[in-house]
Amino acid sequence: MAKELLKVTDVYKSFGGLTAVNGVSFSIYEGETVGLMGPNGAGKTTLINLISGTLPVDSGKIEFAGTDITNLPPWKRCKLGLARTYQIPRPFPGLLTSANIVVGALCGKDMTERSLMDASAEAMHYLEIVGLFHKRNVKAEELSLYELRLLELARALATTPKLILLDEVVAGLNPAEADEAVKLIERIKDYFGVTVLWIEHVMAVLMKAASRVIVLHYGQKIAEGSPQEVARNPQVIEAYLGEEVNV
């Protein structure tokens, strides 16, 4: 039995009168690729923000690798091995592509015996893995959307995470790019042995890549299971397609 890596227990988050995350609980085990699905406004990104510490939880508990991280700031969560990407890529636009990754390599883990030069050398490794080495001296603001997605992935990997939170990686990419991105993530997962929590709108992607899928609707978890089980779940069908109508 794989070890429990992330445990989310009864987490709530409201914005004014709107409850974005409503008592969600789930666990993620080491080595898994877990898909997080749901229609627009289901609370997926909010949940990722709560796990990564970008937003504070109203109530509930989040544990990561046996440590209660509910009230830890994001930088401490990162050092524990929790990294994320963003739905709309957020590079450091004024910095070179390589420098973007150096930030992760330098700060995302224990800084002992790691100089800026060491981190820079390490960053090149991640640039090569995602295929951005030729863009190392280009400012991040000059990269295309696909390259920005790769940059975010490399930057997250540079922190040597145990769990990586991917927020709609293939959104806005053409089918060929999306296919490449999915293959890259699968390769990275095997190569680095990271666990993945993957938010995705494109169901076909998760059906193929995820070993388990969690479905959110109006901030609540409505289904959890293998992709095939979830795809057949009437509640999920209703959430995505609406109620069945007889005509």
Binding site: T54, P73, P74, W75, C78, R90, F92, C107
Partner: peptide
Amino acid sequence: DDEEVANGLG
């Protein structure tokens, strides 16, 4: 450039 992202990167 982006302190929220920097925070998330350690």
